[in-house]
Structures are given as structure tokens and as C-alpha cells.
Amino acid sequence: MTRFLKLVNFELGRFMKIYLALIGITIISQIAGVIIKSNSYISRANEAIYEDLVPKEEFFATEGLMSVLQVTRSLWFMGPIALCIAALIFYIFFIWYRDWFGKNTFIYRLLMLPTARIQIFLSKGVSILLMVFGFVAIQLMLLPIESVILKWIVPLDYRIDMTAGEIIQNSYLQTLIPSTFIEFVLYYGAGIMAVFIIFTAILFERSFRLKGVLLGAIFVGMTVLVFFSPILIMEIMQTYYLYPIEIFILEIILGLMLISVSIWTSHFLLKKKIAV
């Protein structure tokens, strides 16, 4: 166990500088977004109400009241989130390839470790997952801070105060942070499955090189087909034989099954086929 933790800690450490930089960019950009959007709202309100003498109600009717939601729709807010997502997707691949193409083919030393080789696979998966959760956590902590900053700038009559939950439910964040914990587990469980399947495809490529690209693609295609098979079959036949709850349970079973298949296949590849 301590070996495994050591591996995870090590994997995290290798990305830590970029990771912290991404968090820094997110914090700065989102807070700057709140300040800029709030100030521009206030100056528009002042211009309309005091210079053009538009009645307050009319201004609110066309512009709406100021809230964090107005910020969440802007590039200041969504931009860094998209950047973090892109970085993590990139890192899902890079976390493996850097071991082969780094300064001193690091994978040698990893594979030489006296631990089960599947631990390398799992530690990389856990690292990705932890980094994803870290981003989600930072965003959740940022939302109340952003609300407070908005309160400092925008007077009470001009704004709607919202809790973190309300902000999430009314913005795109809803897809990243669902409203119930069960959904959170399901969404990110599906995410882990996807990461493991991509990892396995990478190992196919590392084991069989060019031929492995094809094998990896077939593996991914098969898993997608299996995972969506209940829905696909029903759509093609146009008969909805299963009740929604049954499809749901079936999907969970299929998901768990695909995770095991992916881990088992990777275990086999790492042990028998991997080429350095």
C-alpha cells in the first residue's frame, strides 16, 4: 500500500508545477472576470440611468440584474475551465508517453520495481482522478469567494445573490458538478471507465506499436459498443422492452464489467507484451 501511495504521489509530483499553474490561471481569470463584468455592469447602469435617464425598471428589464451567472457565461470564467479540461485530456496520454520518450526512458525503472505492474497503471489512473477532483474542489471554493467580490462591487439593488448550488444549476457548470451526490458518483465513475479504457488502448499501442494502434482502436470501439448496446438495440428495433430502472442497473453492471476487462487486459499487456 505504501508503495502504491508512493507511486501516486510521485505521479502527482511530476505534473504538479503545471497543475498549480493551471489552478493559478483559473483563480486569477475568474476573479478578474467578476471584477471586470461587475464594473462594466455598474458603468452601463450609471450611464443609462443618470446620463440617458432611462428608468431603473426599464434598465433591469433589458439588462437583467447582475449576478455571478453573468460572469459564468463569459470567457473569463469558462476559458480557464476549458483549458484545465484540455490539459487533463492531454495528460491522460502524456502520463504514459513521457515515460518512454522522456530524458532517460523512465519506464525501465518503473517496470523494474518489485511491485505488481498493474500498480503503475492504477497509480496513473488515481492521479488523473485526484487531479480532476482537485479542480472541481477549487471551483467549488472559488464560487462563494466570487459571490463575495461581486457583493463588494455591485450595490444591493442591482444584484441577485446566489449560493454556489444555485450558480451551478443555472450555468454550464451543471454538466461538471451535478446537483446530487449519486449523479456525481455516476458521472465520475463513467469518467474513470473512459480513462481506463484509453489507458488500455495506449498500452496496446505500446505493446504492438503500429499494429497496436489498430488493436487499441478496436478495443475502444468494442467497449463503446458494449456500453451502449442496451440503448442501441432498443433504438434500432424501436421496441423499448426494458424499464428505465432496468437499463440503469444494466448500464452500471456493464460499466463495472468494462472497468474490470480494461484492468485485466492492461494487467496482461504490462506483464507479457509491453515493449520498452
Partner: peptide, 23 residues
């Protein structure tokens, strides 16, 4: 193990607090 510990603790606290509060 500060990296693994800090990310885990921050995640559990922030995400946990959010879902407990929303519940």
C-alpha cells in the same frame, strides 16, 4: 506524501461540504 494528502483532503472537504450543504 504532501501532494497526495493535500489534494485528497481539499477534494473531500470541498466536494463533501458542497453536497452535504445542498442536501
Amino acid at each position: 506524501y504532501w501532494k497526495i494528502i493535500s489534494i485528497t483532503i481539499i477534494s473531500i472537504l470541498a466536494i463533501g461540504a458542497f453536497y452535504i450543504q445542498s442536501a
